[in-house]
Amino acid sequence: MLDWWRGRAAARERPSVERKASRTGGLIAFSVPGRPVWTPRDYAALAREGYARNPVVYRAVRMVAEASASVPWLLYAGDEERPGHPLLALLERPSPRQAGRDFLEAVYGHLLVAGNAYIEAVALDGQVRELHGLRPDRMKVVPGRDGWPEAYDYSVGGRTVRFSVDEAGLSPILQLALFHPLNDHYGFAPIEAALTSLDVHNAAGAWAKALLDNSARPSGALVYTGGEGGNLSDDQFERLKKELEEGFSGARNAGRPLLLEGGLDWRTMALSPRDMDFVEAKNLAAREIALAFGVPPMLLGIPGDNTYSNYQEANRAFWRQTVLPLVGRTAAALGAWLGPAFGPDLRLGFDADAIEALSAEREALWARVAAADFLTEDEKRAAVGYGPRRGSDGRDAP
Rank of each mutant, 00 (worst) to 15 (best):
D146F: 10
A210H: 14
R347Y: 08
Y118L: 07
S95M: 11
A121P: 11
F374P: 01
H110Q: 09
G100S: 08
D184Q: 04
D79W: 02
P218L: 07
K380Q: 12
R347S: 13
S95V: 01
A336D: 14
Y154A: 08
D213T: 00
T225C: 02
F30M: 08
M276V: 04
L134G: 09
A47D: 11
T330A: 09
A333S: 14
Y308F: 15
Y58S: 11
A193G: 09
L91H: 05
R381K: 05
L195H: 02
S70I: 02
L198Q: 03
R12Y: 09
F248Q: 14
D137A: 07
G158E: 03
A357T: 13
L198I: 01
S272Q: 05
Y186T: 04
G226H: 05
L124F: 05
Y108A: 13
D305Q: 13
E363W: 01
K209G: 12
V107L: 10
G109C: 03
A367T: 10
R256Q: 13
L346K: 07
R320S: 04
D125Y: 08
D373N: 08
G343C: 07
L291M: 12
H110Y: 10
W266Q: 10
R82L: 11
P218H: 03
P303R: 15
R53Y: 04
L104H: 10
D125E: 15
A354D: 06
Y152A: 04
V37G: 04
E80Y: 06
G255F: 09
W366D: 03
A314I: 07
T307K: 15
L375H: 05
P172D: 06
G84A: 03
A370Q: 09
T24R: 13
V61P: 15
R14V: 06
G343F: 07
L299V: 08
R368H: 09
F293L: 02
L131M: 05
A341P: 13
R320F: 00
Y386W: 13
G26V: 02
A332D: 08
T307Y: 11
A371F: 00
A151C: 07
R395E: 13
A354E: 06
P344Q: 10
Y311V: 03
P388N: 10
T307L: 06
F293V: 02
R368S: 14
P33E: 06
G78F: 06
F374T: 04
D146L: 14
A99K: 07
D213L: 08
N183M: 01
D213Y: 12
N183R: 02
R53M: 05
L46K: 03
A397W: 07
D125F: 06
K241E: 13
G385H: 11
Y51Q: 13
S68I: 05
H85D: 11
K20N: 06
S68T: 05
R162V: 12
A189I: 00
H201A: 11
F188G: 01
W337N: 14
D378E: 09
Q175L: 08
F103P: 08
P15R: 11
K241G: 14
R267F: 01
A10F: 04
R14T: 09
L259C: 00
N202F: 04
R368V: 05
E313P: 01
V128P: 08
L358E: 11
G109D: 11
L112G: 05
L299E: 04
